[in-house]
C-alpha cells in the first residue's frame, strides 16, 4: 500500500508511532521516518495511525484504489 506524510504539516506529535510502530518512527527530537510502502497486511494499523494524527498529515491510498488507475 502507498503512504505519504505531509512533513510541512507534521508536528512530530508521534501518535502515528504509537499506532503503527513498525511503520512510523520518530528520530532525534522531531524527525518522522515512515515507510511509504507498507505491506497490505498492515492496513489496519496504518489507518489507525492516520486517524490518530492530530494534524491530518498522513495520506493513505484506499484499498479500492490500489492499482485502479495504474498505467
Amino acid at each position: 500500500m502507498r503512504v505519504v506524510v505531509d512533513l510541512n504539516r507534521c508536528q512530530g506529535y508521534a501518535q502515528c508511532c504509537y499506532a503503527a510502530p513498525a511503520h512510523f518512527e520518530l528520530r532525534g527530537h522531531e524527525i518522522l521516518f515512515y515507510d511509504p510502502a507498507p505491506p497490505e497486511a498492515a492496513r489496519g494499523r496504518i489507518e489507525r495511525a492516520q486517524q490518530a494524527c492530530p494534524v491530518r498529515a498522513i495520506s493513505v491510498e484506499g484499498i479500492d484504489l490500489a492499482e485502479e488507475d495504474a498505467p
Partner: peptide
C-alpha cells in the same frame, strides 16, 4: 533515506487519493 540505504528507490510511489479514470501516457 534512499541514499542512506533505508528505502529502496522504487518504494516511494505516491498514494492516489481518489479514482482518476485517467489515461496515462508514461
Amino acid at each position: 533515506h534512499v541514499l542512506a540505504g533505508e528505502l529502496a528507490a522504487d518504494a516511494t510511489a505516491l498514494p492516489q487519493l481518489l479514482p482518476l479514470r485517467a489515461r496515462w501516457r508514461l
